[in-house]
Computed example of a mutant assay.
Amino acid sequence: MKRDVSARIVLSITQPADLVFAIAVARQYQPSEERFAASVDGSPVDVHELSDAHGTRLHRLSAGTGELVVEYSASVEGQAQTDAASETDLLVYSRPSRYAESDSLAPTAAAEFGGITGAAELLASVSSWVGTQLAYVSGSSLPTDGAVRTLLARQGVCRDYSHLSVALLRSLGIPARLAAVYAPGLAPMDFHAVAEAWVDGRWCVVDATTLAPRQTLVRIATGRDAADTAFLNVMSGRADVVDITVTAIADVLPGDDLNELVSIA
């Protein structure tokens, strides 16, 4: 399967800013073509690439005032290398985190899923439950909303669905994390977020939105929750989003049986 992905982000820099972008495909892939470019008012800006423990590629740059345009594109064929997990990783992804308050949601998880024993059945049940409890409403949540607030509001976007899924799975003793992805087939097109759960020695995708085939997803960033996977962090200065355009196209859009375990890698 071949997937072509791209992102174009336009920011208004009103105070000189230190910015970190997470929009490149993860290190586990070997793109046949790839380009990352940044400019302020048409003048190129130097970009420094960093990589974290799970293969997230971070691009850091300093921008003066003006219009910053960041453009990225890549072509990916086949699957990524397997993303393993150490004992320490599994401990980290079993604990509560900023946006996935598994300790607060433990009574809810026990009440709703306490009688389910099979891992595959549990993942499907959590995904289905979250999907029926929430309404997908663009712009309905704040960047600071976590799983508890999402459940109380009964609405959100993909990151909210994923945070709630992650929190419930951790409450049930299953290590879970968040993955930011490109998602061919997603409509409307944007960056996408899904949960991943550690089952039978691999990370399996849980996407309660069911908005894109899980088999086509291309990993960008991986972490405890959105605090680790945001496409942009403004470390200092002031940067306002003017426009974001994301594309993700696959040469094949397969059917997705939600009862099957599917891994990004």
Rank of each mutant, 00 (worst) to 15 (best):
E112A: 14
L61T: 10
L58Y: 11
V25D: 04
E34C: 03
R57P: 02
L105T: 01
R149H: 06
G118A: 15
S94E: 08
V76N: 00
A119C: 06
S138M: 11
Y99N: 01
D145C: 04
R149W: 01
Q81I: 09
G114S: 05
A110S: 11
L61N: 02
S140V: 11
V137L: 08
H54G: 01
R95V: 07
S51F: 09
T108E: 14
D18S: 13
T65C: 02
T132C: 09
V130R: 00
F21T: 08
S12I: 02
L68S: 03
S104Q: 13
A124D: 13
A53I: 12
V137T: 14
G131V: 14
G78E: 11
A84R: 12
Q30R: 14
G55W: 08
V70N: 00
P44G: 03
D18V: 06
S138G: 10
I116C: 05
H48K: 14
L68M: 03
E101S: 08
S104I: 09
A26G: 12
S140Y: 05
A111P: 00
V45G: 01
V69P: 01
A109M: 09
E33Y: 12
A111L: 14
G55S: 09
R57S: 04
Q79N: 14
S51K: 10
L50H: 14
V47Q: 06
A37W: 03
G64Y: 02
G118Q: 15
V92T: 12
E121Y: 04
V20Y: 02
G66M: 04
Y29P: 00
V69F: 00
R35A: 15
G131Y: 06
D41C: 02
D41S: 05
A80D: 11
G118Y: 06
L105S: 01
L91C: 09
A63V: 13
A74V: 08
S32A: 13
P44F: 06
L122E: 07
P16F: 09
H59Y: 07
L50A: 12
E101V: 04
T14Q: 09
A17C: 03
S141H: 10
A85V: 14
D83H: 10
T88E: 15
Q81A: 13
S94N: 06
V92Y: 06
E33A: 15
S104K: 15
S39I: 03
P44E: 07
R57A: 05
A119F: 02
G114D: 08
A63S: 02
S94P: 04
A80W: 03
Y136A: 03
S43P: 01
Y29W: 11
A106I: 05
W129G: 00
F36A: 07
S102G: 03
E49H: 09
A100F: 02
P107D: 14
G66K: 03
A147E: 05
L68N: 01
T65Q: 05
P16V: 13
S102A: 12
R35Y: 08
T82N: 07
V70M: 07
V76I: 15
G118K: 13
Y99R: 05
A109R: 06
R27N: 08
G42V: 05
A135N: 13
A22K: 12
